[in-house]
Write a protein that binds this DNA or RNA. Structure first.
Lengths: 258, 258
DNA sequence: TTTCGTCCGATTGTCGGACAATGCAAAAAA
DNA sequence: TTTTTTGCATTGTCCGACAATCGGACGAAA
């Protein structure tokens, strides 16, 4: 299997529809087009690239799903700004396919949440703190409803992410959040004091952020996640089991929305 | 702008090519098909879905770019296993489009690298340690060549990622790595002792991993990244500047490979 | 004046058919 | 048996077509 001397550059046997996609992608990423800009109509692209409309359409599809290209209400093409959520959805799916375990999620979350809340403690704006206060208040009012508490928990973590003012951290955090948070409701149903402890943790975290006390914020975030783990295990789950496909049902529709 | 009472659910007029993509996606994610399984030919899909081949092909394209579907050497369709690198590429691009700054990258890296190396110190196998030793040895031999050192640095971090045995962390880390590492060469060219310090740090990190000394490993990883920051600034860059599009040139070809 | 039908052109979504290039596997030749 | 050839299946690309829908213009009704 001796590789012959490599002398020639790989000939570009890339299908035309890929070249179309790459050309558009390059244009966007090189700053030639900004998010929101209108891409031409299909007919125009046909003329520019000199290929058939079917080919253009296939090329467009490649970029469309990734969010780099959007179709607005009138179905016309425009440059999109892929949002973390969408990317996180894909990443989450990859993790499931790779059969990552809950322990891996737990370990990563511990670190990422701690870092996020420290950043939030340092940089949260007044509005962001107000939003968290509102969230905590609402949580207090629905303590008996696991689904509602879980939803508000998810929102709370998103708010902290925003308050961290670090988009890289947010992006890094989202996949694990997306897989852990759906289990919260499950845990709450099994552990009676779960909702109360969750609220307590949120309150303390918020309090620490308000005081700009990074250490305390970090400590409570850690405790919060460890609570989740205990509840998860008490609910009869094994931390070393692969992430179940069940959660994909939660994920699935989120990507197919208009 | 008073929103009228919202009474009807949004009507779902999803085009057929999307429904095709969703159907295939559901089948895969629900475990109905495993990575590596052959998807039928286009003609078969046409029969199953009862739509035109053009429509099927557009649907396929949606999934193809995400890696959920691959075309093997013979161009036939099979279920793919999206790899982190591919996802990281997309995430990196998103970060650039969102104009994230190097400070955000730096902050996130600090945390993620520390966590990764702690996990690696705990769980690295003998083979993985051997691979790192080999990497360090090779680095020692090319200290004068910034490009080679940068490449080996990247490899070293990948090895640590593998040794962490935590795929969630790896996935979280990859986008920031992908954006920071290309700057290493740049930094090395500006700072004379850069390569030596880098090698020293790698050596210490490896040593700590071998001793299963999490604290020490973490400390050296931290120092390593702080070295990068100092070098980055000394090279005349502002940490608060948005990630430049320059790096996209590095990124661009990585996705258009076969 | 504002609101409501209605019409029209432009554009997208979908379809059917076609053909060259290429890969795979069976058939023929060595 | 091994090698070569041939034929078929499949993909990539193109063409032309038509219904559905959107945006806007135009005029009628309130």
């Amino acid at each position: 299997m001796a590789e012959p001397v490599r002398k020639f550059a790989r000939i570009s046997a890339r299908p035309a529809y890929r070249m179309v996609a790459e050309a558009i992608e390059r244009r966007i990423l090189s700053g030639g087009m900004r998010p929101g800009d209108r891409l031409g109509t299909e007919a125009e692209l046909v003329k520019q690239f000199g290929v058939n409309r079917s080919t253009v359409r296939e090329g467009i599809r490649l970029l469309e799903h990734g969010g780099l290209i959007r179709r607005d209400a009138s179905r016309r093409l425009s440059v999109g700004l892929p949002h973390y959520e969408r990317l996180a959805t894909r990443s989450s799916r990859a993790l499931v396919l790779h059969q990552a375990t809950f322990r891996e999620l737990y370990e990563a979350s511990l670190v990422l949440q701690a870092a996020t809340i420290e950043a939030a403690a340092e940089r949260a704006t007044a509005e962001q703190i107000a939003a968290m206060e509102d969230n905590v208040a609402r949580t207090g009012r629905v303590l008996h409803d696991p689904a509602a508490v879980a939803a508000l928990d998810s929102e709370f973590h998103t708010l902290i992410g925003k308050a961290s003012h670090n988009r890289v951290l947010q992006l890094a955090r989202e996949p694990s959040d997306m897989l852990i948070l759906p289990t919260t409701e499950l845990v709450l149903r099994k552990v009676d004091v779960g909702a109360a402890r969750l609220l307590e943790a949120h309150r303390r975290m918020l309090e620490a952020i308000r005081r700009r006390d990074r250490e305390d914020a970090r400590a409570w975030a850690r405790r919060h996640i460890e609570d989740w783990r205990r509840g998860f295990e008490r609910a009869g789950n094994d931390l070393d089991q692969p992430i179940d496909k069940i959660y994909l049902r939660t994920l699935a529709p989120s990507d197919s929305e208009s």
